[in-house]
Simulated assay, not measured.
Amino acid sequence: MSGNIRWNLGFGIAGFAFTFLLSVQNNLLTTSLVRSVYAFLIWFVITFILRAILFQLLASKEVVESSTVQGSDDLVGGQLDLVIPDETEELHDLLKPTPKEQKAVQEGFVPLNPPKIVKVSDQDPEQMAKVIRHLTED
């Protein structure tokens, strides 16, 4: 990997300082130091991982550039040639109505006829009063 460990240490120290300054105002000194050490380790590892990824990306870019300079077209993955099949007929078939749907369209609109609610008005008022008293007593 190109570079050296100074980048990792620099970002780790910056994470340590930032965490310590924000944490020391509300916590004990030992708690702030422990959290700052954790922040240093996390920033150190994150920087290491990001530098490794960046190194891999730059190395692959250099390989591509060197192969194009030499005139080599045999680079795997250098070109991608895809042909998408024509599916317009299948889409039109999906949009065409089925015979069942055509029959419904020919019959026209048929409104929904739900069953009617029957009102029970022939109840004895004294019995209704007893039921209400019984429900309110619970």
Rank of each mutant, 00 (worst) to 15 (best):
M1Y: 10
S2M: 11
G3S: 08
G3M: 07
R6S: 12
N8L: 14
G10I: 12
F11H: 00
G12K: 03
G12W: 07
A14H: 03
G15A: 08
L21P: 00
L21H: 00
N27R: 04
L29K: 01
L33D: 02
V37M: 02
V37L: 13
I42C: 01
W43K: 04
T47Q: 12
L50E: 05
L50K: 02
A52Y: 10
A52D: 08
V64M: 06
V64G: 02
E65P: 00
G71S: 02
D74P: 00
L75N: 07
G77D: 03
L80F: 10
L80Q: 04
L80D: 10
L82E: 11
V83N: 10
V83L: 13
I84H: 09
E87V: 14
E90H: 14
L91Q: 05
D93C: 09
D93G: 11
L94P: 00
L94T: 11
K96I: 07
K96A: 15
T98E: 13
P99V: 11
K100L: 15
E101D: 13
E101R: 13
A104Q: 14
V105H: 09
Q106R: 13
F109V: 10
P111H: 06
P114M: 07
K116R: 07
D124P: 00
A129Y: 05
K130T: 05
K130G: 04
V131H: 03
R133G: 06
L135G: 05
D138V: 12
